[in-house]
């Protein structure tokens, strides 16, 4: 730093575009890694979203449209804005054209453009968020899951996906164990197992109160396929997935 007329003047440094982008990416990734993870898995009848989230009011998983749901990690106010933007986009599009014309692909594109523009515009702070947009189809082969990292890229995912802190490790765990045609209870059990493993290989336990679980269920008779699993229903499903209760009381569920 030099002085001119008693005022400090900072020397302008040259920062290469690569470096500038790398710094922004680093900033966004650090923000995302601080949060708990969200996992999304396909099962026979649809797509299940599982998040570690003790709050009942601030959701990480939400409904966007009839067959489309949204999950996010990172900074709450940023992904909440994106979520509301997505609901407005979907509702306006469905109102202008038809409900069938609202697709996860279209929504993922708009999110990618939004995140990409913000990421590469020097005037804006990059969003510290990573999103998942999923759509449930008529059959498992028609389900779509898109992962949208902070920089505006889109990754088309199949089977299972994890975002947030620890995402790589959780993804690996899920990739090895997820298979097509799992029941909801099996998929839920796998999701919870993947979330409870920490960096050092140890395990924590997660109760129903600490989990936010929602499904896009293609068998739902209503037009809107999104449903949150809460309270007793969730506890029952969690118990169903564990082998001990299956062996001791297989037919006792009060479905």
């Amino acid at each position: 730093m030099t002085e001119r007329d008693g005022q400090p003047v900072s020397t302008p440094f040259y920062v290469s575009p690569q470096q500038a982008m790398a710094d922004r990416a680093e900033y966004a990734r650090k923000g995302i890694a601080r949060g708990r993870s969200v996992v999304v898995l396909q099962y026979t009848d649809g797509v299940v979203f599982v998040a570690e989230n003790p709050s009942r009011a601030l959701h990480k998983v939400s409904e966007i449209y009839d067959r489309i749901a949204f999950a996010a990690v990172g900074k709450y106010n940023e992904f909440e804005n994106l979520r509301i933007g997505g609901v407005r986009y979907a509702d306006l599009r469905g109102y202008t054209y038809d409900r069938d014309d609202v697709t996860a692909r279209g929504l993922a594109n708009v999110y990618a453009q939004t995140l990409g523009t913000i990421f590469s515009s020097a005037g804006e702070k990059p969003y510290e968020v990573e999103l998942i947009v999923a759509e449930v189809g008529a059959g498992p082969e028609d389900d779509q899951i898109y992962r949208l990292p902070h920089d505006g890229s889109i990754v088309d995912e199949h089977g299972s996906v994890a975002v947030g802190g620890n995402a790589d490790q959780i993804s690996n765990y899920l990739d090895q164990r997820h298979r097509d045609g799992m029941t909801l209870a099996e998929a839920l059990k796998l999701a919870v197992e993947s979330l409870t493993r920490d960096n050092n290989g140890g395990e924590r336990t997660l109760t129903a109160e600490q989990l936010e679980v929602a499904v896009l269920d293609r068998t739902r008779p209503q037009q809107r396929k999104f449903k949150r699993l809460l309270g007793r229903q969730l506890s029952r499903l969690l118990d169903e997935g564990t082998p001990t209760s299956e062996e001791s009381a297989p037919e006792e569920s009060d479905s």
């Binding site: 804005n81 994106l82 997505g86 407005r88 986009y89 306006l92 279209g106 594109n109 453009q113 990409g116």
Partner: peptide, 19 residues
């Protein structure tokens, strides 16, 4: 008026404004 017909394709500011 369609969200993704704008030149950048991003969500217009009004879509992301809390309110």
């Amino acid at each position: 008026m369609e969200a993704n017909t704008r030149s950048t394709g991003r969500l217009p500011a009004a879509f992301l404004t809390p309110g």
